[in-house]
Design a protein around this nucleic acid. Structure first.
Lengths: 154, 154
DNA sequence: GCAATTTATATGAAATTGCACTTATGGCTG
DNA sequence: CAGCCATAAGTGCAATTTCATATAAATTGC
């Protein structure tokens, strides 16, 4: 038998933009994250690997911002990824405060491998929508990002 | 001076749906989450409070699913929220495995208070978009959710 | 009606994250 | 150039989350 659902008539969150976005992000990524889990790769590690694809030489702070993590969290994550041979740190020439992060050979191979799977998954996702809608999704998201980007340096 | 950006030409993630969604969710919520932080309320607590607004009597597992958390995480979160007097557990009549969660008076007051702030923030967010776009956003998100909802019981 | 299976919640140890702070540079101003 | 503020990264400890598993209750199939 089924546990009778609570009177889930008008939940606040069902019409709350921030929740809809969070839920959509979660749902859409869950299938791929499941693939990662099966391979023993954490979401955080995947984020760093993918952030470095096409843009190596990122700084620790830059990676943290890209991966939506705090800087100390990124420092510790990079410690682990360095230990497991996926990335390497190197000092910046011009500014000795800065540490540049690069993929190792192993790291790049894994990143590219996962990226293929990620793109395949994305194609599947988009295929579930009518073409016009699929088209609209990324554009709308970019519009949101553009309008709500916090003031950035540069 | 500016640290010269790395050759951030074509990052993989900048055209990756899952990332765009995650980033949009993060950016859009960050301002409100900052308000929460100033009030000493964690995002997780806010999620539970808002999940219960309009739908009390949720189960632990149901709340975990709604709040995008794992069940053991929710159990412990509810432990803390119970201790701080925001929610109360009560046994389900029909199924003694089930625990129903309800807001306390304090919890409801806080939830409603925060919900007002959240809705105000949402209005601000939407005001930054042209009306047609603002209109489209939630609809599109609901379309995504509808199409990618994992098979659910019921 | 009972053993086997499934479902709901809780628990405990280990890993991760968050927060406040330190250290090391770099940039700026007088 | 000295002093001061800003920025980059790392550290330490407390809090939280995760993973695997335990416990309890309900359901299923004989």
């Amino acid at each position: 038998m089924e546990i009778p659902s609570p009177p889930s008539g008008v939940r606040f969150i069902d019409d709350y933009l921030v929740y809809l976005l969070a839920r959509a992000a979660h749902q859409v990524s869950s299938e791929f994250h499941e693939q990662l889990r099966r391979r023993g790769i954490s979401v955080a590690v995947w984020r760093v690997l993918s952030a470095l694809l096409g843009s190596e030489g990122e700084t620790v702070t830059g990676l943290a911002e890209t991966c939506l993590l705090q800087q100390p969290t990124m420092t510790k994550l990079l410690d682990r990824m360095t230990r497991s041979g996926l990335v390497a740190r190197s000092p910046d020439q011009r500014d000795r405060r800065v540490v540049r992060i690069a993929l190792t050979g192993t790291g790049r191979a894994l990143a590219e491998d996962l990226a293929v799977a990620a793109k395949a998954h994305e194609a599947e996702l988009l295929a579930r929508h009518p073409p016009a809608e699929a088209e609209a999704i990324k554009n709308l998201l970019r519009a949101i990002l553009a309008r709500h980007d916090r003031p950035r340096r540069g």
